[in-house]
Structure formats: structure tokens, C-alpha cells
């Protein structure tokens, strides 16, 4: 146990948190952007699955990691557009669409693996490509800082950049205000001339792209192949984090980081003699407690208002 405590307060642990955290941050940003404009994207898990797999397949067939990545992004955006089309034009419940897309991705990805590789488990036999790792000159030579800031996958930096851009857009630009207006009251937003459908379309495209980045990170960085159930509920954790944070990006990100830390600790505990199956449930229990705590807080806030 001492060994574990020691390793938690180390640089290596922080690096693990970053590696584990990036796909989660992508997922929670995707959920955040969509819920901000009032059109829930429940299909994040499914988008991550499909883009993780298509990134691998496309990069293997074209021989280019970049074409693979853009293919994955295109798939993610396409799936987000399915949500937009069916909810706006055909008036289906976005939650139902999301559930259907998730279930579709879970099964369809296995079939795609079967027809491309002949096996249902993983794509290890395909010569798929991996997105580059970035080494920042000079900084990588600084002892501790270098290890923390340099030497991550490209998408890690993309993730940080996008998070900052989203923060600026949401909190500092008129468009961010419009996004929030659409989420708070679409009719009121429409009445003051905001094109609600257009704002939602843009937000959902971004949401699909972000989820696709999360998927591509898993299969073209974190690992170099796709395996069945690789996303392991990360999309749902993103949705949970967005729910815990409400409209507040800071809390959304903090929740996500908290979850990443829990996951990193679990990765270490698995190596001990504790029962693996139970240890694996710890992150989910954390999210559950977080959600319940949030609901209780909101419940009391509502009661306070009524009084």
C-alpha cells in the first residue's frame, strides 16, 4: 500500500492521468457543447466506437494516419448530423436517436471488424497507422516540466487547445451567448432573432468532431489497434461529467479530471491483490456519487427558491 501511495505522488502518475484523461475530456467536451445548446448528444459512446474503428481501418487501407484521422472525424460528424436531421426535420426524440446510434455502433463495429479482418476481437492484424507524438524542443530537456508538457500524442495538445477555444467562445463571444440562449429557452432565443437550428447544427458538428477525436485518440495513439469495447463507457462518463457540471465548463472539466485520477488509481490497484472486478467499478461509483451529490444540491437550490 505504501508503494501505491508513493507512486500516486509522482510525475509518472500525472503522466498516466494525462494519458487516461484526454479521451475523457474529449467526451465531456462533446457532451457539454451539445447540452449547452439544448440538443443532447447521447450518442457520444457510439461515435467514439465508430470513429476509433474507422480511423484504424482507413489508415490501414490508405497507409496514412492523417487520412485515417480525417475519415474518423468525418464519421463522427456524420453521426452527429444524423441526430440533427432526425430530431430537427423528422421530429424524433434526440435521446431515442442517441440510444439507437449507440446500440448500432456497438454491434456494427464488430461486424465491420469481421468483414475487414476476419476476426471479431481486434484489428491487430491490420497495418494501421498512429498519429505522431510531439516532442517540444528545449522544454523536453527540462527535468520535470519536460516530462509533463512534452512527449504526448498530438491529440493531447489538440484537446487542450480546443478546451481553451471552447472556453473563450462560450464565455467571451456573442456566439457563446447565443449558444447558451438556445439551451435555456429555444423559443425566447428564436423570438430575438437567433437562428436556433443553425446554432444547434454548428454545436452538434463540433460535438461529433470532438467525440471522434476521443475515439481516434484511443485507437491511433493510446493503442495502435481497435479492439471490441475499447471505449469502455468513456462516452457515458463524458455525458455524466457534463451533467454534473451543468452549464459550467470549469466544473465539467474538473469532474472529468477527477474521474481520470480515479481511473489512474484503479489502473494501479489492479496490479495489487485486491479483487480486480470490484476495483474496476470504483470510477463508476465515483461518477454515481458525483451525480447524486449534484442532484441533491440542485434539489435544495430549487426548494430554496420556492420558499
Amino acid at each position: 500500500m505504501d508503494g501505491i501511495l508513493g507512486s500516486i505522488f509522482s510525475i509518472d502518475f500525472l503522466v498516466v492521468v494525462i494519458r487516461v484523461g484526454v479521451p475523457l475530456v474529449f467526451a465531456s467536451l462533446a457532451a457539454y457543447v451539445a447540452s449547452l445548446v439544448g440538443l443532447s448528444n447521447i450518442a457520444i459512446e457510439g461515435i467514439m466506437i465508430m470513429s476509433a474503428l474507422s480511423g484504424v481501418l482507413i489508415s490501414a487501407f490508405t497507409g496514412s494516419a492523417w487520412i485515417g484521422f480525417f475519415g474518423a472525424a468525418a464519421i463522427g460528424i456524420f453521426m452527429a448530423l444524423v441526430i440533427v436531421f432526425f430530431s430537427m426535420r423528422l421530429k424524433a426524440d434526440p435521446i431515442m436517436i442517441g440510444i439507437a446510434l449507440n446500440l448500432f455502433a456497438t454491434d456494427f463495429s464488430v461486424w465491420l471488424m469481421l468483414i475487414t479482418t476476419g476476426t471479431k476481437g481486434m484489428t491487430g492484424s491490420l497495418p494501421s497507422k498512429v498519429l505522431p507524438t510531439v516532442h517540444i524542443p528545449f522544454i523536453e530537456d527540462i527535468p520535470i516540466l519536460g516530462q509533463l508538457i512534452s512527449g504526448h500524442y498530438l491529440l493531447t495538445y489538440v484537446c487542450v487547445a480546443i478546451a481553451i477555444i471552447i472556453w473563450i467562445v462560450v464565455y467571451k463571444t456573442p456566439f457563446g451567448l447565443r449558444m447558451k440562449a438556445c439551451g435555456l429557452d429555444a423559443t425566447a432565443a428564436e423570438s430575438v432573432g437567433i437562428k436556433v437550428n443553425k446554432v444547434r447544427l454548428i454545436a452538434l458538428i463540433l460535438s461529433g468532431f470532438l467525440a471522434a477525436c476521443g475515439g481516434a485518440y484511443l485507437s491511433m495513439g493510446y493503442l495502435s489497434f481497435y479492439s471490441d469495447n475499447m471505449t469502455a463507457g468513456r462516452g457515458w462518463i463524458g455525458i455524466a461529467a457534463a451533467a454534473v457540471g451543468g452549464g459550467n465548463l470549469g466544473i465539467v472539466l474538473l469532474t472529468t479530471v477527477g474521474f481520470a485520477i480515479a481511473q489512474a488509481i484503479v489502473n494501479m490497484l489492479i496490479l495489487t491483490s485486491l479483487p480486480t472486478d470490484l476495483v474496476n467499478t470504483i470510477p463508476y461509483i465515483c461518477v454515481l456519487i458525483g451525480l447524486v451529490a449534484l442532484s441533491i444540491r440542485e434539489y435544495h437550490a430549487r426548494r430554496g427558491k420556492v420558499k
Binding site: 435521446i95 463507457g233 457515458w236 455524466a240 461518477v287 454515481l288 447524486v292 442532484s295 434539489y299
Partner: peptide, 13 residues
């Protein structure tokens, strides 16, 4: 009791 988000909770469960 607290109007918690039943979908996410059920998925975590």
C-alpha cells in the same frame, strides 16, 4: 427523491 438523471445513473449501475 432528488430528480437524479436516471439514464446516466442506470448506465453507471
Amino acid at each position: 427523491k432528488w430528480n437524479a438523471d436516471v439514464m446516466v445513473i442506470s448506465l453507471m449501475m
